[in-house]
Design a protein around this nucleic acid. Structure first.
Length: 153
DNA sequence: GCCAACGTTGGC
DNA sequence: GCCAACGTTGGC
């Protein structure tokens, strides 16, 4: 029984086109430094889970494609690299804090813009639309997933 | 660039 | 364990 997720990515870091151009159309979801988001990846995400690939912090925020989890969570090497923007001096190799899954493209879609999402009553329950939400990874219910698919056509 | 929301840190 | 200060997120 697979689950569904919405994952935010800044297009300047990794856009849907970057995902499409990546080897095997798969990218390591490195850099998550929030415990709730980490716990979703570590404790719940399974290969085959559906992912709404969301563009954030950009001129047109919204869902840009469909993807899936392609690898179980494993250690995020960037936390140990002092040169990396994701370096975490408090994380020790014998007890790594941060893990990540891999995400693989299913298909690029039309952009389902944030403002359109807000106008759709069937999406009103989505966590990403709740006021003050900042989580970069949020669970999506089967109903919400189906509603998004219907809107994407 | 602003600012509201909220997670994290650290002193007590 | 509380909570104020601070930093980050992310839409606008």
């Amino acid at each position: 029984m697979s689950q569904f997720w919405l994952m935010k990515s800044e297009p300047s870091e990794c856009s849907i086109d970057d995902l499409a151009a990546a080897p095997a159309q798969s990218v390591p979801w490195i850099g998550v430094r929030n415990y709730q988001a980490r716990n979703f990846m570590r404790d719940q995400m399974q290969p085959g889970d559906g992912v709404l690939f969301y563009h954030s912090s950009c001129p047109e925020p919204g869902i840009a494609g469909l993807a899936e989890v392609s690898r179980l969570a494993y250690v995020d090497a960037s936390q140990f690299d002092p040169q990396s923007p994701y370096f975490d001096a408090k994380s020790k190799p014998e007890q790594p804090r941060w893990l990540h899954v891999d995400v693989k493209l299913r298909r690029k879609t039309r952009l389902l813009a944030l403002n359109e999402m807000r106008q759709r009553p069937e999406l009103a329950s989505m966590r990403v639309l709740q006021p003050g939400n900042r989580l970069s990874i949020t669970p999506v219910s089967p109903e919400e997933w189906q509603a998004v698919l219907a809107l994407l056509g």
